[in-house]
Design a protein around this nucleic acid. Structure first.
Lengths: 148, 148
DNA sequence: CAGATAACGTTTGCATGCAAACGACATGGA
DNA sequence: TCCATGTCGTTTGCATGCAAACGTTATCTG
């Protein structure tokens, strides 16, 4: 029994760090990230992977636009794009209609890579979710999406 | 219909970035982090909060030990502890029995803060999970814990 | 006791991730 | 046309987060 002189004490849930969503999310993120790093080709990180795949979907696109479509801040997407360019996976040309912009696209040499990335991406997700059965996997994704 | 000349094409799930666990986890983490930053006192970050609360639970403890108990790398926990010390929230003394170690503890001036942190922590978790009903919240936490 | 092994803490290097401020350019309406 | 407003890309500053290497100190084993 806890302190009965304070009625609130008996109903308020105790704070246990290991039970908080934020803490658990960080742990799950760490595990996913380790799986990702082991399976992803070209030394791609999670964000680089997301940006590259999204760019392949969209075709030509500006840097900030790509950032918005992948939920990355302007400062973050800049770093990610810089590294993809350094790897030669993404190329850039000036937008003929807007002097502020540059248009990004997947480098021709790497266009074929997208199919590989799709299959690797599915494998990474499968391995991350492996401790759950099919129903649990569907449920988890459904609930997580509500928290976006 | 997709390409029937390739039977695998019809059964393999299509890769959709927005449906992958890793991508969704990042988005949920972003939302949680924004809530956290809005509600947490003393400018505490998620990791600083976790380290401080854990240290309060454990009493005196070495830096690497605290890192292990909060799932932080030696390099990461070092930075976190440095910042907590700079805020004056954590103090340090030499371990009398082991010259390699230092013993961390919550600074006396901040010992009273832990109760505040518990209630704020609960509020942060509640707000993060707010889009879900009670059953869904329990289910989500149960499934997430399996993925740690 | 001596040598291997392991733990402690530190540092460097790299990659996110966000806030805030900046100059350059586009575009709308007065 | 001119001006406000917004967008584009950039930079700085701070805080994780991990890998790898390092010197120091404990501890275990032969």
């Amino acid at each position: 029994m806890s302190d009965l002189t304070n009625p609130a004490e008996t109903t308020r849930p105790a704070y246990v760090l290991d039970e908080q969503v934020g803490f658990i999310l960080r742990l799950v993120g760490q595990r996913h990230s380790a799986i990702f790093q082991r399976l992803a080709p070209e030394g791609l990180t999670t964000t680089q992977f997301a940006a590259f795949v999204r760019l392949a979907e969209l075709g030509e696109c500006s840097q900030n636009e790509l950032g918005r479509r992948t939920a990355m801040d302007v400062a973050t997407i800049k770093g990610v794009v810089d590294r993809l360019r350094r790897k030669g996976m993404v190329t850039l040309r000036d937008d003929p209609h807007d002097k502020r912009r540059a248009l990004l696209s997947v480098a021709p040499d790497y266009a074929h890579l997208t199919d590989d990335l799709y299959s690797v991406g599915l494998r990474i997700s499968a391995e991350t979710l492996e401790p759950l059965n099919r129903d649990e996997q569907r449920t988890l994704l459904r609930l997580l999406k509500k928290l976006r």
